[in-house]
Design a protein around this nucleic acid. Structure first.
Length: 443
RNA sequence: CGGAGUGUGGCGCAGCCUGGUAGCGCACUAAGCUGGGGGCUUAGGGGUCGGAGGUUCGAGUCCUCUCACUCCGACCA
């Protein structure tokens, strides 16, 4: 993308409303614009990152065997009256009426609707298990939204729901999601620790929160130091290998980790460390709470009608954008992990008015783009300092600087954002160095 | 909801106490000079001061009401 043709409104100064790093940097890097308290418009750069995160989440859900659907944002109140949550949910739920004075609501979550979808077609144990997910905007009228997209009122969430015949099967579904979540966060360059958690208004008796440790986290957490060395990647485990999956789950579950609500100081291990964390995912097993209330039943092998065992699983997709920035930034800006970086390469033409310079940069841009690489190309007339500062701010992992001085020697500069390391590279070999397909061959 | 604040050009702010018809930095436009870490000169464009009402000859400035937003707290993915 040529910067001269892009919509990237970067800011030099910190907007006054932004307190924490991720919020500040997202505003300064032109990723989002606030439209109301806790509600944001996503600008091109921000949306690009959001979609990359969404894709990682989607890919791993698909790999786990879940099926994607898409449910509406607006729901009728009837279903919620059936489950009993219409009165229980409180003011967090945004209630609206349509022109016929029908009671509607902007969905804060989808247990009721998914249960309705499930029960309308699934009648036999032979059709189980089922696991359906969607990635959709939710609205929760938070008492106090803050921290930018980390606690917005409108937010993008992946939520899915499992349906099983027995407790044992439900536990297996739960463990599959546990594994899927660890893999999902690992792919984004995050280490998220699964912690025992309260089930809250969703109900149930088995629940884990996935928490990324960060100084600016909202909740205090207590974790065994063994977590620092634990394998959170979930590598080498097959979703279909029930025994191995269970072992992995049990092994990690045996290491102490708890949020402050669940923390039990008396039974906690000695080598404990306290930290602050950001919740990026939350999984629940809640049994038959909704299936009983809403009559979601199947016939088992004996012909007996039984309520299905359910679980629900959520990942805060939009929150992850903030969480990743909290975990990856410095005083100059964002440092994107490559997997979620909006652009992998930032190309700077130092002096566009210099013909040799702009020709060399244009040529390199075309080559890289044609090779399928995502390049943010600063071809503007701004001063050199502004270009560097902006490229650092938006956090592109690799920066290539093409300038007259270097070109005299046939060299360009290559800088790695995460370390700040710079090296001189011959112009005629920079393409090969940046092109991953070539890289692999030579490696 | 309780407490504390803030609303003045796209962003950050000054002016308000001690009313006299709006200013600074950045950004933006034009020309020129520059070009290796937010560069320089000159010339420009853009706001009626969150909204409504009131006091006054006169309100960004004083008074009343109202809306929005931020921070602390309870609450929550």
């Amino acid at each position: 993308m040529r910067l001269s043709q892009y919509y990237l409104p970067t800011l030099k100064e910190d907007p006054k409303e932004a307190e924490i790093a991720s919020h500040r940097l997202m505003l300064r890097a032109g990723m989002i614009k606030q439209t109301s308290a806790g509600i944001y418009a996503w600008l091109p750069l921000g949306l690009k990152v959001l979609k990359k995160i969404e894709k990682i989440v989607r890919d791993e859900q698909d790999a786990s065997g879940a099926h994607e659907i898409l449910m509406p944002t607006i729901q009728a109140a009837d279903l919620w009256k059936e489950s009993g949550r219409y009165d229980a949910y409180g003011k967090e739920m945004l209630r609206i009426t349509d022109r016929q004075d029908r009671e509607m609501l902007f969905g804060p979550t989808n247990e009721e609707m998914i249960t309705d979808i499930f029960r309308s077609h699934i009648k036999s144990y032979k059709d189980l298990p089922q696991n359906l997910y969607h990635i959709q905007w939710k609205f929760r009228d938070e008492i106090r939204p803050r921290f930018g997209v980390m606690r917005g009122r409108e937010f993008l969430m992946k939520d899915n729901y499992s349906f099983d015949l027995t407790y044992q099967d439900a536990l297996y579904s739960y463990q599959k999601m546990y594994l899927a979540y660890l893999r999902t966060f690992t792919k984004m360059g995050l280490r998220a620790i699964p912690m025992q958690a309260d089930t809250g208004p969703i109900g149930g008796d088995l629940s884990h929160e996935f928490i990324v440790l960060a100084d600016t986290g909202e909740s205090e957490v207590f974790v065994d130091k063994a977590w620092m060395d634990a394998d959170l990647t979930g590598e080498g485990i097959d979703y279909n290998n029930r025994v191995k999956l269970n072992n992995y789950f049990q092994t990690l579950s045996s290491i102490y980790a708890a949020t402050d609500e669940k923390h039990d100081a008396e039974n906690a291990p000695e080598n404990l460390t306290t930290a602050r964390g950001i919740e990026v995912g939350h999984i629940f097993y809640f049994g038959t709470k909704y299936s009983e209330a809403m009559n979601a039943t199947v016939q088992d092998a004996n012909g007996k009608v039984v309520p299905v065992e359910m679980g629900s699983y959520g990942i805060g997709v939009s929150r992850l954008v903030g969480a990743i920035i909290e975990a990856n930034h410095d005083e100059n800006g964002i440092i994107w992990p490559e997997a979620v970086a909006p652009y992998s390469i930032g190309l700077i033409c130092m002096k566009p008015s210099d013909r040799a310079c702009s020709e060399a940069a244009n040529d390199l841009y075309d080559k890289l783009t044609n090779a399928g690489l995502e390049v943010l190309y600063d071809d503007t007339e701004s001063g050199a300092g502004a270009k560097f500062a902006n490229m650092d701010l938006v956090g592109v992992p690799w920066q290539v600087v093409v300038g007259p001085k270097g070109l005299e020697k046939g060299m360009v500069e290559l800088k790695k954002r995460s370390t700040g390391d710079k090296q001189e590279v011959p112009l005629d070999s920079i393409f090969d160095q940046l092109n991953p397909s070539k890289k692999k061959k030579s490696a």
